[in-house]
């Protein structure tokens, strides 16, 4: 059998792919968190719950309305985004003048409520969501067999990250967003409705989480804990990439997914802590994160 560094190649590539898939979710989730944190200065602890909500919305759309996966990929982020508008307007908007801690408490409470309601309704074991027929099966890449859906997840996540990055870095809307992140009162004094922009930014951030939720639905069972399982790691990713850094969350998300996957090959016992070890090292060397600007 073909070996790499004394390990069988299929094992290596298999874990690499799993790492990339996890990385795809880390990147999408931490990207949304970064966008929200940059603009609202709030660490959105409800992010994992909204990721889970995205998956459940896709499941509901399929089972009650017969809306297929592809439309759910579009509709679920939209629906969760509208829910985000409600959350921001009615609750989060009241906290901007208060200490960070209040934002943390509120969004953490929201996460518990949303996850609790889901558990009440669906139980802890979750519900299945089928892989869309177009993406079933596997393909032979020559060096390994790759399930097509898993390849699609990596591709879709990368495309969505790229689109988000392009919007923020290369368009005039993105320039306004970056400017408002730096100095919101001045941007508002130029005639821009900053409160509305903040609302839409929150909606956009949680829509990214819901998009990730739909992508995740066919891989993991759609269950109330699926967000909570991810979110702790995602916060580590955000800290490593640098709070609020767009590029940082994308690169770190994918990168750490791969590191985690490879650790499963070389030192399986360490795979669940490796991201946190990286976090400790990065914080020691660069307290603002790999891509963060020192405050």
């Amino acid at each position: 059998m073909f070996m790499i560094l004394g390990y069988p190649a299929p094992l290596m590539f298999g874990q690499l792919l799993l790492g990339l898939i996890n990385g795809a979710f880390y990147a999408l989730l931490s990207l949304g968190l970064a966008v929200i944190f940059g603009m609202l200065n709030i660490v959105n602890f409800a992010h994992g719950a909204l990721f889970m909500l995205g998956a459940f919305v896709a499941w509901g759309l399929l089972n009650f309305l017969g809306v297929n996966y592809w439309f759910a990929l579009l509709l679920a982020p939209l629906i969760v985004g509208v829910f985000g508008v409600l959350l921001e307007k009615t609750l989060i908007a009241r906290l901007y003048k208060l200490d960070h801690l209040y934002g943390l408490l509120l969004t953490f409470g929201l996460a518990l409520i949303i996850e609790g309601l889901a558990r009440n309704e669906f139980g802890s074991s979750g519900v299945p969501y089928p892989i869309p027929s177009l993406l079933q099966g596997a393909t032979n890449l020559g060096f390994m067999f790759m399930p097509i859906y898993r390849g699609w997840v990596v591709l879709a996540s990368a495309i969505m990250c790229l689109i988000t990055w392009l919007i923020i870095e290369k368009t005039s809307i993105g320039a306004t967003l970056r400017a408002a992140t730096e100095n919101a009162p001045l941007v508002q004094a130029f005639g821009i409705n900053v409160p509305r922009m903040i609302t839409l930014t929150y909606a956009g951030g949680v829509a990214l989480a819901a998009f990730a939720g739909v992508l995740a639905a066919p891989i993991y069972s759609v269950n109330p804990n699926m967000g909570a399982n991810f979110i702790i790691t995602v916060f580590a990713v955000v800290v490593i990439g640098g709070m609020g850094s767009i590029l940082g969350s994308i690169v770190t998300g994918f990168g750490l997914g791969v590191i985690e996957g490879l650790t499963k090959v070389f030192y399986p016992q360490g795979s669940s802590v490796v991201i946190f070890v990286v976090m400790v090292i990065v914080l020691l060397v660069r307290p603002a994160g790999l891509f963060g600007k020192a405050a």
């Binding site: 005039s172 320039a175 306004t176 970056r178 400017a179 992140t181 730096e182 941007v187 130029f190 005639g191």
Partner: peptide, 11 residues
């Protein structure tokens, strides 16, 4: 975080 042109075109 904005280029000269982006600053100019912001308002």
């Amino acid at each position: 975080s904005l280029s000269v042109t982006e600053n100019l075109m912001l308002p």
